[in-house]
């Protein structure tokens, strides 16, 4: 009789703790989805992100033009090709200013440096500046700023030509 009682008791208490665990999981799931859906609402409502930078002639070879709203730099290389560089340092996300005198981007946070093609000149940045896809239609440069493209270093196929 005692044995029966014991197994019944342990069976019931096991069910109880299983139910308790289930309740905790459920509450956790509710809390997580509560917080998560809040985020989804915040991120929707962005546009397609296609930015018109301007006519090709406006950008001289070997210069860098900053675009505030799109958060990118439009670099025209010496040979006339276009690159749209994300202004965020690939190390820890500071905004890198273009220093025309030194022909380089220098990060004020941890002294990383990048050349006009976004390649790393100075660590600790682990990879070249992110890119935005560039399109040239009827002599107008357009940049798709919806999502930055990560890359390890500069390669010639990343350049857009007129």
């Amino acid at each position: 009789m005692a044995d029966v009682d014991k197994t019944r008791r342990s069976f019931l208490s096991r069910i109880l703790s299983a139910l308790g665990a289930l309740a905790v999981l459920e509450a956790g799931w509710i809390a997580a989805s509560f917080l998560g859906s809040r985020r989804r609402q915040a991120t929707t409502g962005e546009g397609d992100g296609l930015q018109v930078a301007g006519p090709v002639e406006r950008f001289e070879a070997g210069t860098v033009t900053a675009f505030r709203e799109g958060e990118f730099y439009l670099a025209r290389l010496k040979d006339g090709g276009f690159l749209a560089l994300h202004r965020k340092c690939t190390h820890l996300g500071c905004t890198v200013p273009w220093i025309p005198d030194e022909q380089r981007f220098t990060c004020p946070c941890h002294a990383s440096a990048f050349d006009i093609r976004g390649d790393v000149l100075n660590a600790p940045a682990p990879r070249a500046l992110d890119l935005f896809p560039v399109r040239i239609e009827n002599g107008i440069v357009k940049v798709d700023t919806s999502k930055p493209v990560r890359r390890a270093s500069f390669e010639s196929h990343q350049v857009t030509w007129v």
């Binding site: 958060e71 202004r87 500071c94 200013p97 004020p108 946070c109 941890h110 660590a123």
Partner: peptide, 26 residues
């Protein structure tokens, strides 16, 4: 968001950690 101050420093109690960032791959 457009201009990082120069230098951009963390609060003092994280600066030892920030200094570490300068010397090692992240």
């Amino acid at each position: 968001p457009g201009v990082s101050p120069n230098p951009a420093k963390a609060p003092w109690y994280f600066l030892g950690f920030q200094e570490l960032q300068l010397h090692f791959h992240p």
